[in-house]
């Protein structure tokens, strides 16, 4: 620790897996263990550092290559880009409020070129609703996932890293939240705080953190006893630094995979909530479009079918990407929820 230079570099040497890879660190030179160990504080630590940093990049590159070669994942990526484009272009193509009445009601899709997807019972343009709905779905999906990830990471890493009674208490907390049916909890939370985009997003985030927390906890428990963590501890690093710099990068692959699936399920939850009439009443969302169309299922089923297809399209894209990431990063867990 006396040499600030070494202190800065040592963890990189000890931490092979900035590379998203679980393979044990390849020895930089075929020297006996004791000698390699002394390298950490030796003058040629510099060489060792660059060597392992290189393995890091190649491994990340390999994961990226595997991902880009996967036809399913690429299909998902293209789908998602289309949805993002729809969300971004919505205010440009349809600057008017999608809830405003623009034409005669019940124009079937494909019968009027001005309204390619038709109009609903109040004469609102369905295509405009779909494009604007993409904004809500993506916004809720992404922000809720960030919230869920943040809470789950903090609780999961604390439980997994410290163990002992902290772990016991937090695991009990996770169990209690998971015992409640999540959708009912979601309905309760949204009903308590009155429906708005912010509330729906927050509630979805709150409901989804336990999955992340469990995952992060088990990763941290597995990694906590690894040699490089023990070494970092013996070098006198603080808990926060060990958690963030040493363990977290190695726990990332399964978390990355989970987060894409989380965005997908957040979108599904948001659509179910708005379908039940618990969405933001002033904004159009795919779920609320289905809820409105439901009354007219017998006569105008396209009003239900089209927004539903939009949801399936988006969620499928995210799940395809999640699968591709899973294959590329190849973590030890199978996706389970």
């Amino acid at each position: 620790m006396s040499n600030p230079d070494t202190a800065e570099r040592a963890p990189v040497v000890l931490n092979p897996a900035l590379a998203y890879d679980r393979s044990p660190p390849k020895p930089d030179a075929p020297t006996p263990n004791e000698e390699r160990w002394s390298n950490v504080h030796a003058p040629d630590a510099m060489r060792a550092t660059t060597a392992s940093a290189e393995t890091g990049t190649t491994s990340a590159n390999r994961a990226l290559r595997v991902f880009l070669r996967n036809p399913n994942a690429m299909t998902g990526l293209i789908f998602l880009v289309l949805v993002v484009a729809a969300a971004l272009l919505a205010p440009v193509l349809y600057p008017e409020d999608p809830l405003s009445m623009v034409a005669r009601p019940f124009i079937w899709p494909g019968t009027n070129s001005t309204y390619p997807l038709g109009t609903d019972s109040l004469g609102r343009d369905v295509l405009s609703g779909i494009l604007h709905g993409a904004r809500i779905s993506l916004l809720v999906g992404i922000v809720a996932t960030v919230i869920g990830l943040a809470v789950g990471l903090i609780i999961g890493s604390t439980a997994g890293y410290f163990g002992g009674w902290v772990d016991d208490v937090l695991v009990k907390l996770i169990e209690i939240v998971q015992t409640l049916p999540s959708f009912i909890l979601l309905v309760v939370l949204v009903a308590i705080a009155q429906p708005s985009v912010a509330v729906v997003t927050g509630a979805v985030g709150i409901v989804s953190w336990p999955t992340v927390a469990r995952l992060v906890r088990s990763e941290f428990r597995a990694i906590r006893e690894k040699d490089y963590v023990v070494a970092a501890r013996s070098l006198g690093y603080g808990h926060v630094r060990i958690i963030i710099r040493e363990i977290l990068p190695n726990a990332l692959p399964p978390i990355i995979v989970t987060s894409s699936v989380m965005v997908a399920s957040a979108i599904l939850m948001e659509s179910a909530l708005s379908f039940m009439g618990l969405g933001d009443p002033n904004l159009v969302s795919w779920g609320s479009m289905i809820g409105d169309g439901r009354e007219l299922l017998r006569t105008a089923w396209y009003l239900t079918a089209i927004p539903g297809l939009a949801i399936v399209f988006t969620v499928l894209a995210l799940n395809l990407i999640g699968d591709g990431l899973n294959d590329a990063l190849n973590p030890r867990f199978t996706d389970e929820r």
Partner: peptide, 12 residues
């Protein structure tokens, strides 16, 4: 199947 909302497939 994993991507289809339950209420929507119900309606369909």
């Amino acid at each position: 199947f994993y991507s289809i909302p339950g209420f929507w497939i119900g309606l369909m």
